[in-house]
Amino acid sequence: MSHFHIKTPFGLRPVSEFSYGGEVRPPLAPDAPDEEAIAHLWLRANVAGVQKERWFHSSGTRRWYTIVRDTRTNLVLAQPGEEYTEGAA
């Protein structure tokens, strides 16, 4: 596992303590048509570049965190609570 850190209330913790929750997708409206629900359930952007994603701190604080990461380099561009602005890294 390549190494990067995610910020928690207890400081930066190694990614090996976390479980991956996948790319952030807009929530599905309760009255969304079937095609939209199916797409939401299965289809992924699988971006090669900047991605907003969720991580669960399974071996630690047992909470969810949202970060922005460049999937090509594994550099974390925005830690939880930080705003990501393009080109900032």
Partner: peptide, 15 residues
Amino acid sequence: IEPYTTYSMRSTNTF
């Protein structure tokens, strides 16, 4: 496989 999505091809010592 690595448990998360990435396009990095870096080999690691952890592995």
